[in-house]
Amino acid sequence: MLEIRNLYATVEGREILNGIDLIIRPGETHAIMGPNGSGKSTLANVIAGREGYVVTGGEIRFDGKNLLEMDPETRACEGVFLAFQYPVEIPGVANLYFLKAAVNAVRKYRGESPVDAMDFWDLVHERMELVKMDESMLKRSVNEGFSGGEKKRNEVFQMAVLQPRFAVMDETDSGLDIDALKVVADGVNALRNPERGFLVITHYQRLLDYIVPDYVHVLVNGRIARSGGKELALELEQQGYALYNEEPGRARRAA
């Protein structure tokens, strides 16, 4: 469903991604691991279409369509979701209202009528359970005054309501204690199905104990240095990234 071919990207003139190849098929969960500054978050932002992330080569196709030609809202409407590493606060806009605006924007794109109020209410309540979210969070302004854990939970909740076909989780585990991590992981796992793809970006192996990936890729200096199964994450946990950082030659050999 997502094909990334020989992708190069720069941020503020600096080359961050240096030829990424990655294919994610429906139902697969891929994990991207790597040291700080390796380009993990850049990859997430390029997929979502954030301004300031300039693609200088290669392509991304989503169900065969050229993703890079679409503006961010079109990508979202096509079914690409980004769970933000740093979710943004929008004061005065109730979480529920925001979510409804998003659901209706996607429905409009698909040529559907706005969501029925009762149906939406039912869906929201069903999905709240997934992430054990308190009802009061619906009335609060989007992410305003939320704790780190609440923000991440809110991201997964939005994903659960929007039901995208492909989701990028950008360091969703950062800043979470173990209980919050489990809740978030349970939420993601509940959404895994044969049609939906996930790209889970993380610095630590810990998250992958709970969201068990089909494939693990190690990103170093803007390039996938090594790919493997879930066991690769454990290996990284023991050996660290130093191997890849300090001896790029050896890393390539290992790949």
Binding site: E51, E73, R75, E89, I90, A101, A105
Partner: peptide, 26 residues
């Protein structure tokens, strides 16, 4: 902020609607 607009757009909300959403919230 660009961040707020991008956040809304990533959820499918157009820039114009995002602006009015943010302003009305304000």
């Amino acid at each position: 902020s660009e961040d707020q607009l991008f956040y809304c757009r990533q959820r499918g909300i157009s820039t114009e609607n995002a602006v009015s959403l943010i302003v009305n919230g304000f």
